[in-house]
């Protein structure tokens, strides 16, 4: 076991290195979600408002899809968006886009909520319902969202039935892969593999790196 060498080094009083740059609201509106998160990380409140308008629909949408209960969905949406503000300083662009970061957090929070003890009853009901076919909202305000919906729907259709059900039961209905295997009556290993190759086929269809 090597010995750690500890040396006292006193740093001079430190100024913030990320000196906040302020941008005009017009600048915000034209900014990408990635840029907005960088601004938010500098404590830029107006940038957060623009970011809210940019992602609130999709964050709420995916949380509600998983949780279904509107009141709980609002609560978790608020938690997630406040967490985006709080941890924007830690967003790591090397791991992916800010959009991915935010929606991964949203989905994870919704899943954690749905799997918590008090939600177990609802889950039983959901498993019983088997309503795994995603019903997309008819009312999509933004054109980009409508296009995105059409593309996702089209790409989901290109999957095999087992791939599609594995991915959507997990992502939209919040099932574990064990539950998916049970509901679809297929081996665990098959579900696991279909989730992976289903996502890969979606990627090839949607062109994530556009």
């Amino acid at each position: 076991m090597a010995v750690a060498t500890l040396v006292d080094v006193t740093l001079s009083p430190m100024a913030s290195l990320r000196r906040g740059q302020r941008f005009s609201p017009e600048h915000h509106d034209a900014s990408s979600v990635d840029d907005l998160v960088v601004m938010v990380a500098r404590g830029d409140g107006p940038a957060f408002e623009v970011l809210y308008d940019r992602v609130a629909n999709s964050v709420f949408g995916v949380i509600r899809r998983v949780l279904r209960d509107p009141a709980q969905s609002e609560e978790v949406t608020q938690e997630v968006l406040v967490e985006v503000w709080r941890t924007a300083t830690r967003f790591d662009a090397d791991r992916g886009s800010a959009t991915t970061w935010i929606h991964t957090m949203a989905h994870r929070r919704a899943i954690d909520r749905v799997r918590s003890a008090q939600a177990s009853h609802d889950r039983d009901e959901r498993v019983a319902r088997r309503d795994h076919v995603p019903a997309f909202d008819e009312v999509a305000e933004r054109v980009e969202t409508r296009l995105e919906q059409e593309q996702v729907r089209r790409c989901l259709e290109h999957l095999t039935t087992l791939q599609r059900e594995s991915v959507t039961l997990a992502y939209y209905s919040g099932y574990t892969y064990r539950e998916v295997a049970e509901v679809l009556d297929v081996p665990l290993g098959t579900v696991k593999t279909r989730m992976r190759d289903g996502l890969i086929r979606l990627r090839d269809c949607m062109g994530v790196f556009r």
């Binding site: 991915t100 969202t145 729907r153 994530v208």
Partner: peptide, 20 residues
């Protein structure tokens, strides 16, 4: 793969209550 799931999220966008 996570980048793809984010697209699945955007596809189910739905506006939250304005008060939120």
């Amino acid at each position: 793969l996570t980048a793809i799931t984010a697209r699945l999220a955007v596809a189910v966008s739905s506006p939250p209550p304005a008060a939120l």
